[in-house]
Design a protein around this nucleic acid. Structure first.
Length: 609
RNA sequence: GGAGGCGUGGUGUAGUGGCCUAACAUGCAGCCCUGUCAAGGCUGAGAUCGCGGGUUCGAAUCCCGUCGCUUCCGCCA
């Protein structure tokens, strides 16, 4: 911005310099800087002021001999005062340059300092990157956002979104806004609802995603649509989940899975090569079927930045003298395990900890076997159950899991989904605890052939695993009814560093097929018409085959920023109780407002009443 | 709904039954200081240890309850 020596000029604004742009080529110029006092160093005579804005920090010198008036003002200013400083850009005296600062070769000799606004002492440090209680940060978010870390994150977020827009624009996508006041769809997440004043007793819902609307845009012939879409879900929070969040929602006509995946992969590859500080581990992105991911990683969002893959040893121990293994296999279960490198000599208390962890993940127990190198090079097992296992069984398991001398084997015997889940979580937990995760790279992967249905134990029925508009795989059409648990969908998830970035699918575009799916899910005709009539009707008027995906923008930016919490990349996030601590939302509304909306409150009794 | 962690001057921490009349750093206020950049020096103010109850001769510390924040599980078509 300053390569030409020209000072940045903003349209419609009086000319002044930012605190990040002055360089030696500007020496001799008279400039005006506007910004916040980052620090003041008062030497009695000289006073140094570090003036800060979004662009950087510039040192201002108030010299009583040069300008007694500005020195007098500089004595009164404090941190976070807003100043307008006019002065001359000068070279710093030899030996006092600061190479750590972008503007460290120069300084501005103040000729006039105007206090545009004084400031109270802030409740936490703005000029230091120290941990501060998040409640306080959120309450004073406008001060928190002044801090360098948050400025960096929000600027990064802007660049990500800008990149995405440019990338998709260059590929014939158009951005279309869809409404925020839409119709409630009770399946899936809970809706945030908005009462209608004009229609007493009727409510809008805020969209959980623009899913149906973007499909209707395909019917409308928009061909390629995207939106940086705000989505709302009234569910409990996590470090990577907020009640309102932003998705890159996109949809394409006349495509199959490969087209959507290629577009998405191209976008993320280009985006990360432009904006990430770490390389992508594998290009093209590895693909795993859902079944394979569950088997090898015990998760549908595997972190491929480290190994420690799960191995299945069911066949090896099916006839074992160790009853837990043999009985589990007998009753249709599996025995699977992971090898933990270098942990053969794990302490008893550590084993107890890991076992307890496994229990919280749903395991009945955890078998551990430390493999110590014997004198003759053979493996000596160290385990409370070693006496029940034959040397062949132990050697076989070690080979299957890739465990060698010095390693620890952890084994779970249970039904396959439980064993996968427990080991998948142990893998992640231990991988991080033992520093096995290569945090110097980003690892993308695709999960394909997702299951079509999921059994909903609570409602005793089959639910769409992705959403009910997803197309089944052609080869599984005939088992949809006979064996719904085995049917697969034309759905794919994109996964990054162990986070699910987004899900996509090829949609159903024919009314008869969509109807069939709703019927399989247990809806009768009246209910189908009431809930989805608009979509089904649209399908009768020439709906093209179409599909898309919706990666989470917040998660992408979070990972790019190296943050572990989504709140760090959202300007005004909610806390875990879904409150905005700065605005004080949600809040009660007056009786007059309630009356106008025809709403009577039925509040829970206060505790203890 | 459930489980864990945390809660001590403005901020970040230490203190885990008596040495606490609560420490350290930073910030804040005042004074000194003309080349600092986390400036430096001196002085000072600032905490009913989240709240309530209990155990004890004695509680920041132990117990019970409660509130707040947070992480995870459930939940998130």
């Amino acid at each position: 911005m300053t390569d030409s020596g020209e000072i940045h000029e903003r349209a419609g604004q009086r000319r002044y310099s930012t605190c990040g742009e002055l360089r030696p080529e500007h020496i001799g110029r008279t400039v005006t800087l506007k910004g916040w006092v980052n620090r003041r160093r008062d030497h009695g005579g000289l006073i140094f002021l570090d003036l800060r804005d979004r662009y950087g920090i510039t040192q201002v010198v108030a010299n009583p001999q040069h300008s007694p008036e500005s020195h007098r003002v500089a004595e009164t200013v404090r941190n976070e005062y807003v100043l307008s400083v006019t002065g001359t850009v000068t070279a710093r005296p030899a030996g006092t340059e600061n190479p750590a600062m972008a503007t460290g070769a120069i300084e501005v000799q103040a000729e006039q300092i105007e206090v545009l606004n004084p400031a109270k002492t802030p409740p936490f440090y703005i000029n230091e990157d120290t941990e501060v209680d998040e409640t306080l940060r959120l309450e004073f978010r406008y001060l928190d956002l002044r801090r360098e870390r948050m400025q960096r994150n929000l600027i990064l977020r802007h660049r990500v979104v800008k990149f995405i827009r440019d990338y998709l624009d260059a590929r014939d996508f158009i951005e279309i806004e869809t409404p925020h006041l839409v119709k409630s769809t009770p399946e899936g997440a809970r809706d945030y609802v908005v009462p209608s004043r004009i229609h007493p007793g009727h409510f809008y819902a805020l969209p959980q995603s623009p899913q149906q609307l973007k499909q209707l845009l395909m019917v409308a012939g928009m061909d390629r649509y995207y939106q940086i879409a705000r989505c709302f879900r009234d569910e409990d929070q996590r470090a990577d989940r907020q009640p309102e969040f932003t998705q890159l929602d996109l949809e394409m006509s006349f495509v199959d899975t490969e087209d959507v995946m290629a577009l998405t992969e191209g976008l993320f590859t280009a985006l990360f090569e432009k904006l990430a500080s770490k390389p992508i581990l594998q290009k093209p992105f590895p693909r795993l079927t859902y079944a394979e991911a569950m088997l090898r990683y015990g998760s549908d969002k595997p972190d491929l930045r480290f190994g420690m893959e799960i191995g299945d040893v069911t066949d090896i121990v099916a006839q074992s003298a160790f009853g837990v293994f043999a009985n589990t296999v007998q009753s249709g279960g599996v025995v699977r395990g992971i090898a933990v490198p270098g942990q053969a000599d794990i302490s008893r208390s550590q084993v107890d900890q890991v076992t307890e962890q496994a229990r919280t993940f749903g395991a009945k127990g955890l078998v551990w076997i430390g493999l110590q190198a014997g004198d003759g090079g053979e493996l000596t097992p160290r385990s409370p159950v070693a006496k029940f296992l034959s040397p062949d069984e132990i050697a076989g398991m070690a080979e299957r899991l890739g465990a060698g001398p010095g390693d620890l084997m952890l084994l779970v015997a249970d039904q396959a989904p439980v064993a996968a889940n427990v080991l998948g979580r142990l893998r992640v937990s231990l991988g991080h605890a033992l520093g096995l995760v290569n945090t110097g790279v980003h690892a993308f992967c695709w999960i394909t052939e997702m299951p079509f249905f999921e059994w909903d134990e609570e409602h005793r029925r089959w639910e769409a695993a992705h959403h009910p508009f997803t197309s089944p795989m052609d080869e599984d059409l005939d088992i949809l009814e006979s064996d719904p648990g085995r049917a697969r969908a034309k759905a794919y998830d994109i996964v990054l560093d162990g986070y699910e970035l987004g899900s996509g699918s090829i949609r159903i575009h024919r009314r008869d097929v969509q109807n069939k799916i709703f019927e399989l899910m247990g809806y009768d005709d009246a209910e189908i018409e009431r809930r989805f009539g608009h979509l089904l009707r649209a399908f009768e008027y020439g709906a093209p085959p179409h599909g898309g995906i919706a990666p989470g923008i917040d998660r992408v930016v979070m990972i790019l920023a190296g943050e572990e919490n989504i709140r760090e990349v959202i300007a005004f996030p909610k806390n875990q109780s879904a409150q905005d601590l700065m605005l004080g939302a949600p809040s009660p509304i007056d009786q007059a407002q309630l009356d106008e909306l025809h709403i009577a409150l039925k509040l829970p009794k206060p505790a203890g009443a």
